[in-house]
Every structure is written in structure tokens, then in C-alpha cells.
Computed example of a mutant assay.
Amino acid sequence: MSDDGRFERATSRFTDRITEDGRDGWPVEAGRYRLVVSRACPWASRSLVVRRLLGLEDALSLAVADPVQDERSWRFTLDPDGRDPVLGIRFLSEAYEAREPGHPGGVSVPAVVDVPTGGLVTNDYQRITLDLETEWTRLHRPGAPDLYPERLRDEIDERMDGVYRDVNNGVYEAGFATSQEAYEEAYGRLFARLDQVSEHLAARRYLVGDTITEADVRLFTTLVRFDAVYHGHFKCNRNKLTEDRVLWAYARDLFQTPGFGDTVDFDHIKRHYYVVHRHINPTRIVPRGPDLRGWRTPHHREELGGRPFGDGTPPSPPRQDEVVVPL
């Protein structure tokens, strides 16, 4: 936090990249790495969606942490004996320690861990999905969509920058603010950007071009949490997502697209935010609402045209061991 009550997000400490040529010492290799996520975390959820869309499940294994972490970091209490069955560790902090003994910083997800050494490779949430899209192409499934097409990258980057600053991170700046001024500034930027995005999407199905891109993935992971968490818990309460006709239809369109909604676990989302953030919710009571059935209602966004996967195809259904309890 800054002296004037503004939330300041820490930068990723470990920014090595896994690339086709292995220039950082980490070559793309099927089965070598393990992606550690929490289904509660919007930054980690980006990697879940991209991994599904690209069909990387067999190449990049998945570890899902308990949504409620403790002072020792994200924990693997969802697994038998409380240990990740591949890495053999109880806490993600052990992978950070293996990478940097005495690591002084925070422990965040998503994280990619080198299975042979048990050490962290990267926790660079801004870069992980881009590299999955551009460096892991040899391992993509047949029919995988191009989520970061080269001809549109400047526009995608511009869209993502604004959405990150004012929406993805903006909800946290509002929710974690410790001064009225800081809260109101973040609140204002958040809804100004959402209004802009809503106007942009009123006549087009996706943020950039006529197919799903990385920009849509990044916006979706905040929108899907908006009414369940950010509206009340983070005081982002000018209006609910369901009260914005365009954004609500856009979010439902993506949710109902294979690879998006089938990665979302609202139970994990709600338990994490309402239980872990004791300074905001000291009673740790998890609300029963909102009613989630609306996520499956018709959205009619297909009337705007567009091709969700471009020249590609939808991903196969989730692996049996990765199925989320449906709404």
C-alpha cells in the first residue's frame, strides 16, 4: 500500500520464459512442467482458459490449490494427504524455496514449476499465457485457435493495457483502498473503462477482430467474478454486471463457449475472497448469492457474427479429473 491508501500490485519476481528455443534455459517440453493455479484467482484463471482452448492438457499438467490459503501460502489440501501428487509438496512456497532459498517475497499463482527439480520457473502472470500461445505452438491441439494473431497484436496489447489498468487491477485498487480518495479514484476509472468497453462491444462480438483473442480471456476472468465478489466485497457497486445489457450478454457468450465456463468454480471464487480477506470481511461469512442460473440463459450475441475459434475448432470436453461442478 502507498502512503495515501492506494493499493500497489507487486511485480512478478520470477520472469523466466519457457520458449521453443530455450533461450532462458527452459525449453518447451511436453510433460516437463506443472501449472499451479487456484480456480479462485483471476490471474490464474487466464492460464486455465488458454490451456483448455489450445489443448495443452497432456503437455502441461495441472495442480489446483485450495482456494483458502494460510500464512504458509497456497496449499494442496484438495489432494490426498495434502500433497500435490506430482511435485510431492504441501505448499507452493516449497517450489519458490527450491528456486530461491530464503525467498523473501510473496507466493502467487499462476506458477509454472519444473517437475524434475521441483523449482519454480515463472510466476509472470502477464507473460505465461502469451508464451503458451506463441512458444508452445508445436504442442497445440489440431484446430487450436490463434489467440494472439500477429497482425492484431498492437490492438490487442492496447486493449489489454487499458483493461488491466482500470478493470483487472482496478477492482483490487477499489477493494483494497484504505482512503476514501484512493477508493473513489479507482472506482471512477473502473466504471469509465467498463462503459467504454460496453460501448465498444455493442456492435461487435469480441474485443479485437471477429474471433476470441487473449484480450477477451483477460476481460472475462474479471467479469465472471464481478457480481459474485467485486460488486459487494470490493465496493464496486455502481451497478451489477447483470445490469449492463451488453457486458452481461458478452460475458454469458464467453461463459457458454467451451474452454471458458467449464474452468470456472464459483464456490472456490467466493470462499477465497470472503474467507481470506479478513480485513474486509472479518466475519468470514460467505454469501449465498448471487443466483448463478442466469449464466446459462440465451445471450443472442451470435447475431453479431464472428467466429469464436476462427478457422479452428472448439476444444474437447474437460478431462475427467479437471471437471468443475456445473451450475
Rank of each mutant, 00 (worst) to 15 (best):
S108V: 14
L78N: 14
Y172T: 10
R165P: 03
D84G: 02
D157K: 09
E155W: 04
S93W: 07
L78P: 09
R51L: 05
Q180E: 14
A98R: 15
E97T: 14
W74G: 01
V68K: 08
F76C: 04
T137S: 13
P101Y: 01
V167W: 08
R51A: 10
L132K: 00
P80Y: 00
Q180I: 11
N168V: 08
T122N: 11
P80E: 10
P67W: 01
R75D: 08
G102Y: 00
G119T: 07
L139G: 03
Y172W: 06
A174P: 06
R75V: 13
E97R: 12
G175P: 02
D79L: 08
E100W: 11
R153S: 01
A63Q: 07
F91E: 06
V171M: 11
R151E: 15
F176S: 03
L62T: 11
W136F: 15
R151F: 10
L147N: 01
E155P: 06
V68Y: 04
Q180G: 13
R151W: 09
L139W: 10
A65G: 07
A177C: 02
R159G: 04
V86Y: 07
Y164A: 11
Y125A: 14
A98I: 03
A63L: 12
A144N: 01
Y148N: 12
D161F: 14
A144W: 02
N168W: 05
L120T: 05
R83G: 07
G55V: 00
W74Y: 04
F76L: 01
A59F: 09
V112W: 10
